[in-house]
């Protein structure tokens, strides 16, 4: 690890002012950042400890719920209100990492964690995300874990978070503090980016931006929500495919549906076409199978990850069925 200067930050204003400087990096839970620093992938000159500056409460608001950026993942997953009214969030959180890491990792940091693409993690290999202009090693290389939708010729990495899949499905908002404005709100679907020509940018967080909270609007999905995660081992591994599904039902009729996936793209991926198809239909296995077929129609696998397509199809069907038995 390269030497750095450590600073304890006391307020959000101080945090955003200092973060805007070159070489300044914020740390909260640190479970991803410290790993990246040990591998010299992230090399901050100044490390800003913002754990004391960030909100760490979960509170109800007029429109829903606000989760402070410093709330630890385990605290959010086990919170009564989240378990009862936003169970998809709790399920996704508990599907990620290990109990130790969930006790450490912050909600804000979860949104900012970086891809686990092996080319990004190995500094001897080319990677446009880590070192722009060096090329993408994965696109014609070891791309078993890589994207099957939304990728570019520059980058085929996938977003690693489970929480973010649930937040994307529930149309959450990211609350950000910058130096010039008091509060900026970015809808979740616009927060993370597709790789395009600039895969080094994971998201649209402004240079001085500090994530202070995540807002989730109230919804009727809490009765019928499910998270399915498929991976190389049963627990404590990143997703090959994950599906967050939520249904709002009136009797057997689907009033509205949400479908999002992890392990498929550079950002949490919403399946809008399948959601539109599900709306107004009866909640039957046949409907779910048709929705899953619509989902996989969008995919374009790489040389070594065509296996993900049938896996995704099955996961969508199972997730939608699990919604009925949630």
């Amino acid at each position: 690890m390269r030497p750095f200067t450590f600073q304890r930050i006391q307020s959000l204003d101080q945090a955003s002012a200092r973060k805007a400087n070159d070489g300044h990096q914020c740390i909260a839970g640190g479970t991803n950042l410290l790993d990246l620093m040990k591998k010299n992938i992230t090399v901050p000159e100044v490390l800003l400890d913002i754990t004391k500056a960030l909100p760490d409460q979960i509170e109800t608001t007029a429109k829903g719920i606000r989760i402070g950026a410093m709330v630890r993942n385990s605290a959010a997953a086990n919170h009564d209100l989240i378990r009862s009214k936003f169970p998809l969030v709790s399920k996704a959180l508990l599907a990620g990492a290990s109990p130790q890491i969930r006790n450490m990792a912050s909600i804000g940091g979860n949104l900012l964690q970086r891809t686990r693409c092996p080319y990004f993690y190995d500094t001897t290999l080319p990677c446009n995300k880590r070192n722009p202009g060096t090329g993408c090693g994965a696109i014609d290389g070891e791309n078993r874990m890589s994207a099957i939708v939304g990728y570019s010729t520059e980058c085929v990495a996938v977003h690693p978070s489970d929480l973010c899949i649930a937040l994307a499905a529930l149309d959450a908002n990211v609350i950000i503090r910058t130096t010039d404005k008091k509060e900026t709100i970015i809808p979740f679907k616009d927060f993370h980016r597709l790789p395009g020509e600039t895969p080094e940018q994971d998201n649209n967080l402004p240079v001085s931006g500090i994530i202070t909270a995540v807002d989730i609007p109230s919804n009727q999905f809490f009765k019928n929500a499910a998270y399915v995660k498929l991976r190389d081992r049963e627990s404590y591994a990143f997703a090959l495919i994950s599906v967050a599904a939520a249904l709002e039902l009136n009797g057997n009729k689907i009033v509205q549906a949400r479908l999002a996936s992890g392990g498929v793209a550079h950002k949490p991926w919403r399946w809008y076409e399948a959601e539109a198809f599900l709306k107004g239909k009866n909640a039957t296995l046949e409907t779910f199978q048709k929705a899953a077929a619509i989902v996989v129609k969008e995919t374009k696998p790489l040389s070594n990850n065509a296996f993900k397509v049938p896996m995704l199809k099955g996961a969508v069907e199972v997730a939608l069925q699990n919604c009925l038995n949630a």
Binding site: G30, D35, N103
Partner: peptide, 11 residues
């Protein structure tokens, strides 16, 4: 429970 290898001592 937490991982001491991913915690900075100064924090």
């Amino acid at each position: 429970r937490a991982l001491s290898c991913l915690s900075l001592a100064v924090m």
